[in-house]
């Protein structure tokens, strides 16, 4: 979006010009532009950044920094949005973690930043997360989607354990579950009753969008 001064916020977000973006946000607020409109423009930037990542033009560190820049801009906007009685619409909330006994955490991390950059609210519990913890956090955060990562033959069963624990706690119906990691596959997802399998970060993003009912 280009405002009167000719500032292209989409390009500025994509080029990670943080100071300029934050100045622009403040300027827009001062000029009484509705905060949700400002947020909309920022999201547009993030979306283009995500597209460029999928096309191989933007690299992962840039994607991560773009997500962080967006977060800081939203912090500036937060009070104004609240005051206006509005609510920032997010694509959804995703809770993410690597299952108990498994310390491979780069995969879930990468999926988390990819989702954040695409506009999801993501809470990552890191690695070696016991089923009880997933249940507790699911009860507390009520995420739309729970993402479970496992890279070892000996820990993949824990993905099934989490699904069972959610069921036992009566939380299974409110939360879609997606599994991923080097040893997981569609057959395994079906076997343990997960709602989806994500082969990599981009596939995960697309599957999660489908789970929350976004088609693009």
């Amino acid at each position: 979006m280009t405002n009167g001064s000719g500032f292209d916020v989409v390009e500025a977000v994509c080029e990670l010009r943080e100071d300029e973006v934050l100045d622009w946000v403040e300027g827009q607020l001062a000029a009484d532009v509705p905060p949700l409109e400002i947020a909309e423009a920022l999201s547009g930037g993030l979306e283009v950044l995500g597209q460029r990542f999928a096309e191989g033009i933007v690299f992962i560190p840039e994607l991560v920094l773009g997500g962080e820049l967006f977060g800081r801009a939203m912090e500036l906007l937060g009070p104004a949005i609240e005051a206006s009685g509005g609510e920032m619409k997010r694509l959804g909330t995703v809770l993410m973690g690597t299952v108990k006994g498994d310390l491979h955490d780069l995969g879930q991390n990468l999926v988390s930043v990819t989702l954040t950059a695409a506009g999801f609210k993501v809470v990552s519990l890191g690695c070696d997360v016991p089923p009880e913890r997933f249940v507790e956090e699911t009860a507390r955060l009520k995420p739309d989607v729970l993402g479970l990562s496992a890279l070892l033959t000996t820990t993949m069963q824990a993905q099934g354990d989490v699904i069972e624990a959610l069921q036992a706690a009566g939380l299974r119906n409110g939360t879609r579950v997606i599994v991923g990691g080097a040893v997981a596959n569609q057959r395994w997802a079906d076997e343990i009753g997960a709602d989806a399998y994500g082969a990599d970060a981009i596939d995960g993003l697309n599957k999660i969008k489908a789970l929350v009912g976004i088609n693009d």
Binding site: G56, L106, L110
Partner: peptide, 9 residues
């Protein structure tokens, strides 16, 4: 290295 385009190890 982590491949910075694909995120693979």
């Amino acid at each position: 290295i982590m491949d910075m385009r694909k995120g693979t190890a």
